[in-house]
Write a protein that binds this DNA or RNA. Structure first.
Lengths: 197, 197
DNA sequence: CATAAGTGGACAGCATCTGTCCGCTTCCTC
DNA sequence: GAGGAAGCGGACAGATGCTGTCCACTTATG
């Protein structure tokens, strides 16, 4: 994702070194994993360890924590926007809807830590992406409603909010042998509850 | 909950002082709130602050962290067991089921931090409570299935697992103005998806 | 090969948590 | 009341872990 290939070397300036690019990619990927498993407060050391680089490298790339989080969020949004386009390309509106709904839910579940706090952050570029995804999602949902496949008693924002549901399977009782199965189960029942009778 | 009234003073021994009892209750309540909002790793200082007592008091009451967490869990289980009994008392099996399901879901949502790690801990007393709740829950679910009101294609454990669904509403996108509304929404749709016909 | 870009990780400074200890307060008994 | 034990609060030391910097070293490039 977001592999920033530099432009050709201009004048005598040196091109961006390939090892630097590779490390940048590693850091971003590690950050995604780290944020997913340890929340927004992951330490830079943790990310560096996960990426197999030194802390200095992470700090050089993202001097401000906001920048790092924005990069992570942007990376996720890019993937989701892509999925949303696929969803709109489906002839069957319900199929498209469940595709997007499932992706959103799983992505949200994997990044439960990434909630609220980043809403306002991330700068205009990320805001733009978020807006785009939101718009696509609205269209996917409304199209499914128009085709009579999706309940009409919920506003599209409400349907969207449901994607946050399977975020955590933590239960007071002690049964979660397989979170993946749990997510799948929740999605199945939610979709059953959303489908038109 | 669990207010441990001491037996009458035996011999010349002094009865448990009332201020000590009051503080014990405060600490437990504070611990529940703190665990709910900050997870299992809340510091003792945080709990003490929340309870309005000194750290020493908390440490004296619960020298081991496990003991504190077991107390919290036990307190929650007690409430839920009570609700489960109410559910079994309902003539309408579906009504009973949704009562218990909703309670379990909300309680789980409020205590998302209290997941996994405590499964094995808590000692035999808590294990006993958990077992009791599990058994009651199974009966509530199977009764609803027997009355033909609840989908039969899910095992009772699967239905139970669904209660963990609304645990977190954190979304990659930025909309969670009202978590309570979110929970309610999820429950509504889940129940719709679970109902027969 | 020369050189600059990039790297790793030690390190100082800071924040926070744990667990203890002891002078003081509160409650109970007589 | 008065005496004394039980309980309390919170300062404090020690441990841990995080942030952010800095510089000797490595590596890609021309």
């Amino acid at each position: 994702m977001n592999t920033e290939r530099s432009a050709a070397p201009q004048g005598t300036a040196m091109a961006v070194r390939v090892d630097a690019q590779r490390n940048a990619a590693r850091v971003l990927a590690a950050a995604r994993r780290a944020v997913a498993s340890a929340g927004l407060d992951v330490s830079y050391h943790e990310i560096a360890r996960e990426a197999g680089v030194g802390v200095g490298t992470v700090y050089r790339r993202y001097p401000e924590r906001d920048q790092l989080m924005a990069a992570v969020l942007s990376d996720i949004l890019t993937e989701l926007i892509d999925t949303a386009h696929q969803a709109l390309d489906c002839d069957d509106a319900w199929e498209g809807f469940s595709l997007l709904f499932t992706s959103l839910a799983l992505r949200t579940a994997q990044n439960a830590g990434l909630s609220g706090s980043l809403d306002q952050h991330g700068g205009p570029a990320v805001a733009e992406q978020r807006h785009e995804l939101l718009d696509l999602t609205r269209r996917v949902i409304e199209r499914a409603q128009d085709q009579g496949r999706l309940r009409r008693d919920l506003a599209w924002q409400e349907v969207l909010r449901l994607t946050g549901a399977p975020a955590v399977q933590g239960c007071v009782l002690g049964l979660e042998p397989d979170p993946a199965h749990g997510h799948h189960l929740v999605l199945t029942v939610l979709l059953d509850g959303l489908q038109t009778g």
